[in-house]
């Protein structure tokens, strides 16, 4: 599909408004419906989009054994969209954000030196992390204000808060780049990337809820067992479910 093609206009116009990342509203369309709309793309565009969407989604680098492999995947994806500089920039920014968060976690876990960062390539961010390992925000706090909050959340062990801060930043990066694209390949790619973020957050919440429910059930069953041994009334069960 050529740039500025009328098909892009139809496709972009058929995609719903996604709204804010952490609003309680459900996704305005299902994954099935999204795939159906994306079938308007020509094969080559679809392949490029899938590559970008895959690498920027969480499971996309889940199977990577080494950091170098993750970096290589991102770089390959970025090269595949060289004709779309804004999109390539978002992919690179996404990798940089991952690097910064990973560096914060490494340091929190007690890494005394930036040795693992050597595998992250020769990007400016990797160099800044290596050079300023002892700096709270790797000397990047001014250019990336979100790092201060992320560092505090990471140090406090607030994983959900950190996840939220990172997703907010990534969403902002995409939003900023998407401002200049309404009816082109980039517009569609940015939509898919934002869709994935919201989908992931909602799934993340569901996972949390399921984990909490399981914990509650276990503690309830354990309480009932103990209470049953003492007095066979099962009276502790209602109390646990209301926790």
């Amino acid at each position: 599909m050529a740039e500025g093609s009328f098909q892009y206009i139809t496709l972009a116009a058929s995609l719903p408004h996604l709204g804010a990342l952490f609003s309680n509203a459900d996704l305005p369309m299902s994954r099935y419906r999204l795939e159906e709309r994306l079938s308007m793309l020509e094969d080559e565009d679809r392949r490029r989009l899938d590559r970008i969407a895959h690498v920027t989604s969480w499971p996309g680098v889940d199977g990577c054994d080494t950091d170098a492999e993750v970096v290589a995947r991102f770089e390959a994806a970025s090269r595949s969209v060289q004709a779309h500089p804004d999109l390539a920039a978002v992919v690179r920014e996404r990798l940089e954000t991952r690097m910064l968060v990973a560096a914060l976690r490494l340091r929190r876990d007690g890494a005394a030196d930036p040795a693992p960062v050597a595998a992250w390539g020769r990007t400016a961010i990797a160099r800044a992390i290596r050079t300023n390992w002892s700096e709270p925000t790797f000397g990047l706090g001014r250019a990336r204000p979100w790092l201060r909050a992320a560092r505090a959340l990471c140090a406090a062990g607030d994983h959900i808060g950190l996840e939220r801060a990172v997703l907010t930043e990534v969403y902002r990066q995409i939003d900023r780049a998407a401002d200049d694209h309404q009816f082109d390949f980039e517009a569609v790619a940015f939509f898919v990337m934002r869709f994935q973020l919201i989908e992931r957050w909602q799934r993340y919440d569901a996972t949390r809820a399921r984990g909490r429910l399981e914990a509650l059930l276990q503690s309830t069953l354990a309480g009932a067992w103990t209470a049953g041994n003492a007095t066979p009334t099962g009276a502790g069960m209602a109390g646990s479910l209301s926790q």
């Binding site: 009328f6 098909q7 206009i9 139809t10 496709l11 972009a12 116009a13 058929s14 995609l15 719903p16 369309m29 709309r37 009816f183």
Partner: peptide
């Protein structure tokens, strides 16, 4: 008309 019409068709899908 083609540009606006393409957008209208897309909007009707949604």
């Amino acid at each position: 008309c083609a540009r606006a019409g393409s957008a209208a068709i897309g909007a009707m899908l949604d």
